[in-house]
Design a protein around this nucleic acid. Structure first.
Lengths: 188, 188
DNA sequence: CAATATATTTAGAATAATCTAAACGTTATA
DNA sequence: TATAACGTTTAGATTATTCTAAATATATTG
């Protein structure tokens, strides 16, 4: 293997790792690959160039880079004198994680609260049923729904705290006697 | 719509919501549906019964209930006098979230650290190249890899802290003046 | 040991996601 | 206003995932 190939391989192995990391969260690997190209770029990169580096179509990059933008993993940056869209990576993983967790849980709460409200409405109606068994079933089910609602309320708050912690973490330095390289890298 | 249908609908709308919530994280909806059946069950439920309730094959339940077990969303419980496998839901979402985040990040670290180590090894080799440009490229890339390594170290620790927070959260009660239903539901 | 009751694996069909190439729309500039 | 340089959308091919039904494996009971 030539030295040039080794350099390429060093780069690609990490880009590949990003791909598999994103896949852990249900995203297509190419999203991680795009993020990888941007992670290693010293300057903001255009769509065409990303596509070229990865050997995928511009359409794929166009679509997926917007997903990355939505996840706050990359930012679009404007460059004077060019009409291209350029992108750069957000390299603070903690920031990304917090945003994604908060975002997902917000969606989760939205989905579930809608279902909970619908359920409560329906169960209230069944509460007036002439059939006693149905009324009792509705009552039992309603208890579970109320419990679920409370659980989600709690859950939402834990996530809020997780998000609030972000600010705290950016003031912290971890001490590790085994590693003198230790330092604060999470600062934005 | 009959009262019986309303009851069924109340139940199914939440089961459906669980399906869509799991889909947010890249899982098939049926996983959320299975979780939903177990969430609403007063007693542990067997595979056959879950399959029947949802109208899916037993194979699907068998495979996906093990995924849920891996995610610590459900537990297998033994029932005296039966040879069936019974399952019950973990209903503490915070617990589930912390486990999943920690688990995913552990995998992520494993994937990325392997790639980082491989890269460092390769770049060290390129560091001895007779070609000066290649040596310089390797050096520049190595700096980025070192930075990445530090970022992941930090990231891993933030997640550790998130996990440690679980214990703390179980001692907390949130105050909310707008809601007198408020109480500690996160306790296990 | 045979019969039964179970869970799991497998092969293949159905479905859904992803990618590409080409068409399209938009904006800037000559 | 025409052209060029983009990004985006669309239609369809490809690929991967998910599901089912049947076969298989495993353990339990009589």
């Amino acid at each position: 293997m030539s030295d040039q190939d080794k350099l390429t391989e060093a780069r690609n192995s990490v880009i590949d790792a990003f791909g598999r990391s994103f896949a852990l969260y249900g995203w297509p690997e190419v999203i991680g690959h795009i993020y990888g190209v941007l992670y290693f770029a010293e300057q903001p990169v255009g769509l065409e160039e990303i596509a070229g580096e990865l050997g995928v179509s511009k359409a794929t990059v166009s679509i997926n880079v917007r997903v990355l933008e939505g996840l706050k993993c990359v930012r679009k940056v404007w460059q004077k004198g060019s009409r291209r869209d350029y992108y750069e990576a957000e390299r603070n993983f903690t920031k990304i994680l917090v945003k994604i967790v908060k975002n997902n849980i917000a969606k989760e709460l939205e989905i579930t609260n809608a279902a909970i409200n619908k359920s409560k409405e329906l169960l209230t109606q069944v509460g007036n049923s002439p059939d006693e068994d149905l009324r009792n079933n509705a009552k039992a089910h309603n208890r579970l729904i109320i419990k679920l609602e409370k659980e989600y309320k709690w859950y939402g708050r834990v996530v809020e705290m997780f998000g609030a912690g972000e600010k705290l973490w950016n003031t912290v330095t971890f001490k590790d006697k085994n590693n003198k390289d230790d330092e604060q890298v999470g600062l934005t």
